[in-house]
Design a protein around this nucleic acid. Structure first.
Lengths: 151, 151
DNA sequence: CTTGCCCTTGACGTCAACGTCAACTTTTAC
DNA sequence: GTAAAAGTTGACGTTGACGTCAAGGGCAAG
């Protein structure tokens, strides 16, 4: 298959495919005239690359992982690499969950017409990390009537 | 508080604080000589900004959100904006979960010394989207008969 | 043969969130 | 009073994953 076929079936641009090759993630054959020729399995491979990139793995890491993944087995090094990336993703998910929950709390508060009698306001939804406490008075600064960020 | 104090307590660089100001996320006062002066609440604000940035929200979006968050209540527009970002984060989390599960399957397979009798190989862990099916034979690349751990 | 589409390499542009450096002024410490 | 530390603006550099031309080569159809 030629580069355009792979691009269409995998849902990426031809530029992306050439970029992946440049980064060592793909190694297509060439026809006599120099055109790239991919096996059908390249479609799956490109989708995997895309998924890993979307998950935040840099192409350098993907390059290290791909041989083991394609082989279906790996050395202890491969295992550690895979596990490390899995843990990184898990940590990112936890971060996202915390932020999403904070947004949920903000949304709930935004639904209350008069937030005065809303007990949730005691725990500000936008302060997930409470470890500073060096100046309790300053933390409750009376909201100065300074102009809000213009927009 | 001056810029260095905020930076230390919030765990960011002074450059980042000036950048946030440039993007309209912060609006510190100035002393007579031109130095920035922040209220103590800026520490929390900066941490929230950091959290949202880490969650993938661009500063432009954060700029729109911050007034509503600080006010503790908002218009229907604010609600929609907050909900949209929450949904975006949830979608990202689902993506990450799928990738993490794929990595987990790869790890499990990598643990099997002889993957021949491993039924998990029937469903390749690196092909989460199965809708191509143009060449099933090529998908089961014949692994080298030598079970030597490469590398 | 020529039209049109696909392909090639090469090189520069983009965008976000800062890092880094320069040149200078203000504040703080001794 | 002097030096170090911290602050200021301005401007350019970085990184990753591509987008976007530019200038040409290859090839089936009419």
């Amino acid at each position: 298959m030629r580069i355009g076929d792979i691009a269409r079936q995998a849902g990426v641009s031809t530029r992306a495919l050439r970029y992946y090759e440049e980064r060592g993630l793909l190694a297509p054959d060439r026809t006599h005239s120099g055109q790239r020729t991919y096996p059908g399995s390249a479609v799956e491979r490109v989708r995997l690359i895309q998924q890993l990139l979307t998950a935040g793995l840099p192409s350098r890491t993907i390059r290290k992982l791909l041989p083991f993944i394609e082989a279906g087995q790996g050395s202890p090094d491969a295992f550690e690499l895979l596990a490390a990336e899995r843990d990184r993703i898990t940590a990112t998910m936890a971060d996202l969950a915390a932020t999403r929950d904070a947004l949920d709390r903000m949304i709930e508060i935004a639904h209350h017409p008069t937030p005065e009698h809303c007990p949730a306001l005691r725990e500000p939804p936008w302060a997930p990390y409470t470890d500073v406490a060096d100046d309790g008075a300053a933390a409750l600064e009376p909201a100065a009537p300074t102009s809000e960020p213009s927009n």
